[in-house]
């Protein structure tokens, strides 16, 4: 019989009693997302593999101490993020994260440069379909192009290139699909700061996709 371990209390009890199916369930469910998370902090796939292996060892050693004040998922991600930050800092000497000074001044560029707007009462130019911002049209890319491997690879790179605090929030919210409450809890952010980081990150990713679609159109 397959046991459903999606309830944290059931899962934690089973892990503490040494149930291998419970641990296997946890591995199948979280290994790949945890490795993807780790890979955002470290420069190579091999290092990300090391970080996740260390994470699982830390999980096994720490499961007796898990108090259930956060969900097991949050606890796992906290462990992998801590291990990966430590390792990433050692490898590349970059440390800033959402709780570090500078997180909110890093990359505080406007969503669109001011020269993208024209005065709202300027009716001398061609009708651009907008009040002061011309209509943008890359959402008219064919779906096959939008969802193509090349676009997704570019998107992945754009997220990785974000300042660390924005990258963490965008990855958890938009890639992993966490709620804002989960992200605030896991990263120790206020709702407002979380939204600021999320918006700045999304704005940069949007911009990267725009450049990509525009450069490929003019070819």
């Amino acid at each position: 019989m397959r046991v459903d371990f999606s309830d944290d209390a059931t899962l934690v009890d089973a892990l503490r009693s040494g149930d291998e199916t419970a641990f296997g369930w946890l591995l199948d469910r979280y290994h790949a997302p945890l490795r993807r998370t780790a890979r955002m902090y470290v420069p190579t796939d091999a290092l990300a593999d090391d970080v996740v292996q260390e994470t699982w060892v830390a999980v096994v050693r720490g499961i007796d101490g898990f108090e259930g004040r956060s969900s097991l998922k949050t606890w796992l991600y906290r462990i992998v993020m801590n291990q990966a930050r430590t390792r990433g800092a050692r490898e590349s000497r970059t440390i800033p994260f959402s709780s570090a000074p500078g997180a909110f001044t890093d990359g505080a560029a406007p969503t669109f440069e001011p020269d993208r707007f024209r005065p709202a009462d300027d009716r001398t130019g061609p009708d651009t379909g907008g009040r002061s911002l011309p209509r943008l049209d890359w959402e008219h890319q064919p779906e096959s192009r939008l969802l193509g491997a090349e676009t997704l690879a570019l998107l992945d790179d754009a997220i990785r290139a974000l300042p660390p605090a924005q990258r963490e929030v965008v990855a958890l919210r938009d890639v992993d699909g966490w709620t804002s409450a989960e992200v605030c809890h896991a990263l120790g952010l206020s709702e407002t700061n979380q939204r600021v980081l999320l918006h700045r990150g999304r704005a940069k990713v949007r911009s990267a996709l725009e450049s990509y679609f525009e450069s490929s159109r003019s070819q």
Binding site: P33, F112, R135, L136, W138, D174, V175, G177, V205, L209
Partner: peptide
């Protein structure tokens, strides 16, 4: 239409990001 297209693009960014997982 300009702002409507910006909203569409943000929603597209969110949708595509979800595909990465």
């Amino acid at each position: 239409g300009g702002c409507a297209s910006v909203l569409d693009q943000f929603q597209t960014v969110i949708r595509l990001s979800g595909r990465l997982s």
